[in-house]
């Protein structure tokens, strides 16, 4: 241990104590405060200070009444337990710091592992935003293109939050990447992923996913859903929103599930809106906003370029919830 400041010694403390007892002046109190700050900086335990106090007192007043003298021993013993508890607390605080830094490393790694590029597809304007409620994101989206310029879109929500969720997401991402281009059929992809998840995750953990395949030449969007929060389709001709209806159980619960495939023929001005429950379960105070209110907000920004639009919608809901997200928030617009 480094040599402690010359202020921390018995002589000094005794002088301070004596000066305070005889004059009760503020200066000695101020000195005492400095003394205790220094003690903390040098990891001096509380019982050591008590010990110094006792010694100083005994030297100043050798004839202390027996009761007072033994009460000081009593205080010393008490402070020893307190000191132990305090040391334990300090150790835990250090450990907490270490864990926090590990989690932030994991979060960075998650971003690297799961990063996806928003591709440029002729005639399709894509906007995507995904914001975690805590450090780790349990939502995920992924874009993949093939040589014909077709676009595969996955949006998923893994239940169970935090690190296990992030690890499960990496598994999904690498499975998605490993499917050959010839098998990018949404229902086939979900059926394969379901088997991967069912075999590899804990009971009680599951993943919801919407998978779409946009054919650039024909503007046809094929899709299937594994229990994912339904998205919406904005039909420009009718100026109306429709819920995208699908059927299919979440990934990871049964091993022999099939997923029905649906399709939408997109026309100019149409928008496909994909989201996670962090968007639909937006709360204002004690109340959930309803679907119509949510769609009104989306409608307000729909005319903007897709990326700007999703960001503005996110900021709107973030503000509405007092800048405190309860759940991860992911929103994707595909504008024709």
């Amino acid at each position: 241990m480094e040599p402690f400041h010359h202020n921390f010694n018995l002589d000094n403390y005794r002088k301070l104590l004596k000066s305070y007892i005889t004059t009760e002046d503020e200066t000695s109190l101020y000195q005492a405060e400095l003394f205790s700050k220094l003690s903390m900086q040098h990891n001096i335990l509380p019982e050591e200070i008590i010990n110094i106090h006792i010694q100083a007192l005994r030297e100043l007043y050798p004839d202390l009444p027996k009761e007072i003298d033994s009460s000081l021993n009593f205080l010393l013993e008490t402070m020893i337990s307190y000191g132990l508890a305090y040391q334990e607390f300090q150790t835990l605080r250090e450990k907490q710091g270490e864990l926090e830094s590990e989690i932030s490393i994991a979060a960075n790694m998650q971003q690297t592992l799961l990063s996806t590029h928003k591709p440029k597809i002729m005639g399709l304007d894509i906007g995507a935003v995904s914001v975690p409620a805590n450090i780790m994101n349990g939502d995920y989206y992924h874009f993949v293109t093939d040589e014909n310029g077709n676009l595969g879109i996955a949006i998923a929500d893994v239940i169970g939050k935090g690190i296990p969720a992030a690890l499960a997401m990496s598994m999904i991402k690498y499975s998605l990447d490993s499917f050959p281009e010839t098998q990018r059929n949404p229902s086939v992809i979900l059926e394969n992923l379901n088997r991967v998840v069912e075999r590899n995750v804990d009971t009680g953990m599951f993943i919801t996913m919407f998978y779409g395949l946009f054919h650039a030449k024909s503007n046809l969007l094929q899709f299937a859903s594994a229990g994912h929060e339904p998205g919406f389709y904005y039909c420009a001709k009718e100026d109306k929103f429709f819920e995208i209806k699908t059927k299919g159980i979440v990934l990871g619960v049964t091993n022999d599930t099939t997923y029905e495939q649906f399709e939408i023929q997109m026309e100019p001005g149409d928008v496909v809106i994909l989201l996670t429950d962090g968007v639909t379960e937006c709360r204002v105070g004690d109340r959930f906003i309803d679907t119509d209110e949510m769609l009104e907000v989306i409608r307000e920004y729909l005319h903007l370029p897709a990326q700007e639009a999703v960001e503005r919608v996110f900021r709107h809901f973030e503000k509405l919830q007092g800048f405190h997200l309860r759940d991860d928030f992911t929103l994707i617009f595909l504008k024709k």
């Binding site: 239940i159 169970g160 009680g204 953990m205 599951f206």
Partner: peptide, 15 residues
């Protein structure tokens, strides 16, 4: 109820 709650019922169903 959020999806964490569903997870509990899925565990129970498997049991």
């Amino acid at each position: 109820m959020d999806s964490t709650g569903l997870g509990v019922f899925i565990s129970a169903l498997k049991a």
